[in-house]
């Protein structure tokens, strides 16, 4: 039993329990708030993120298990968007009806948004760029 303390073992179920418990608590908080503010569009998982952050602040940071598990999930975040992206096939008709203006609006607006956001950020930042990493 004492061996566990010598080397930090990665306990994935414990980390997943933490993530799911935070999400569940977040859903409860948002669900309760919706009883009073029915129009609230705030997603439960975002409230869950705030709760996990508070827990990290209280504990002084994530343990090795939480660190490794969240790293693995976030490095493969692209995978989680695949089912929703396949869903675009359902809107093929309506997307192609306005194909050209929509495509142009999407591409130009996305480029403009990237340029404006990064430009304003650099304008107001103190020039201590986090280069590398």
């Amino acid at each position: 039993m004492g061996k566990d303390q010598a080397t930090p073992t990665i306990n994935i179920p414990a980390a997943l329990t933490g993530l799911l418990a935070c999400q569940l608590a977040g859903e409860v908080v948002v669900g309760t708030l919706r009883l009073y503010f029915p129009g609230l569009g705030f997603p439960g998982p975002v409230a869950g993120m705030a709760l996990l952050f508070a827990w990290l602040a209280w504990r002084g940071g994530p343990g090795a298990s939480m660190d490794a598990t969240t790293d693995a999930i976030l490095r493969n975040l692209s995978l989680l968007f695949v089912p929703a992206a396949v869903g675009v096939m359902q809107y093929g008709d309506i997307l192609s009806r306005y194909g050209f203006p929509l495509l142009l609006a999407l591409v130009v607006s996305t480029l403009l948004t990237l340029l404006v956001t990064v430009g304003v950020f650099l304008l107001f930042s103190r020039g201590d760029g986090e280069s590398g990493s």
């Binding site: 999400q23 998982p45 709760l51 996990l52 994530p62 660190d67 975040l77 695949v82 089912p83």
Partner: peptide, 20 residues
């Protein structure tokens, strides 16, 4: 595919770690 899609919730919660 919903089992993969479902993980978007816990992944959103996980964003607290890089934020920290």
């Amino acid at each position: 595919a919903q089992f993969v899609h479902f993980l978007l919730g816990p992944a959103t919660v996980a964003l607290a770690v890089p934020l920290w």
